[in-house]
């Protein structure tokens, strides 16, 4: 049963671009009555698998920027460990409330994402950060339809701090927080969109590993729960990626975004109900 729902979560996660964790945690919590800690632990495990699987494909392409990824992983892993420790201190209701907020935020940005075709705004960068980016050789380029596209990240410090926050959210809530990472790479650091999504995915596996290691050592990974979630999300992600290539998903996306929003409200209510 849980495997089936995870399959569903994996398919929709891939179709909508939300990570599986964002979907599977509320399902586990709201419909199976599983406590938030174990749900987040199981979801983190599934997130690792999903990210690794996607990275294998992305790394063969020209977009993933390993240097940017590795550099920002310093921030995301620290954040994830902090978030995972925070999760074990905070009570479940508060985490449920935070999760609700994250879902509502995600449903909002998810609708935005498609309408976004803007050219990367070239705001002036601070000279020091620009020099740092040069010294760290973070610039990259790739060929897009025969044309060479060059890019260099702006606002390193801003991106770095946001990544620490994204890592914290990942460790705390058991999600990949890919939307948040893409936001930092794309909007703040002004990287091309494809570089942002693939590099974000590259980092998610390591971020989730940092978080789940803490869940492991705290005993929040239940093998009999993690297994069906893991297999379900992995198979689902695979099917979803295949479907994505030949499906018009716009209507589905809108419908699903509404679903995510409603789930966010439900998580909020659960959190507040538990707090009393």
């Amino acid at each position: 049963m849980i495997a089936f729902c995870s399959l569903f979560a994996g398919v929709f996660g891939a179709l909508t671009g939300l990570g599986g964790g964002m979907i599977i945690v509320p399902i586990l919590v709201l419909y199976f009555g599983i406590d938030v800690h174990h749900a987040a632990g199981a979801a983190l495990i599934a997130v690792i698998a999903a990210s690794c699987a996607a990275s294998i494909e992305f790394l063969k392409g020209p977009y993933t920027n390993i240097r940017i990824g590795v550099l920002l992983e310093v921030a995301t892993t620290l954040g994830a460990i902090f978030g995972a420790h925070l999760a074990s201190i905070l009570n479940q209701s508060l985490i449920a409330v935070l999760f609700g907020i994250a879902l509502i935020y995600a449903s909002h940005t998810n609708l935005d994402a498609k309408t976004d075709n803007r050219k990367a705004s070239s705001q002036p960068d601070y000279p020091f950060q620009e020099r740092l980016a040069q010294n760290l050789k973070l610039a990259g380029n790739y060929l897009d339809q025969g044309k060479s596209v060059s890019y260099s990240p702006n606002h390193l410090f801003g991106g770095f701090s946001l990544m620490a926050l994204a890592g914290t959210a990942s460790g705390l809530l058991g999600i990949g927080s890919g939307a948040f990472k893409v936001f930092a790479l794309d909007r703040v650091m002004n990287l091309p969109f494809k570089v942002s999504t693939t590099t974000s995915n590259f980092m998610i596996g390591v971020t989730a590993a940092a978080g789940s290691a803490t869940y492991f050592s705290k005993g929040y990974i239940e093998p009999t729960l993690a297994l069906p979630v893991l297999l379900g999300v992995t198979c689902g992600g695979y099917i979803g990626a295949r479907l994505l290539a030949r499906m018009k998903v716009k209507a589905l996306r809108v419908l699903f975004t509404v679903g995510v929003f409603v789930t966010g409200i439900q998580m909020l209510m659960k959190g507040f109900a538990g707090a009393q």
Binding site: I81, H85, A210, A213, T214, F216, S217
Partner: peptide
Amino acid sequence: TVLVILIAGLFSTP
């Protein structure tokens, strides 16, 4: 550095 952080996370048993 990332590797050290990861390993530290694994062994930071509370």
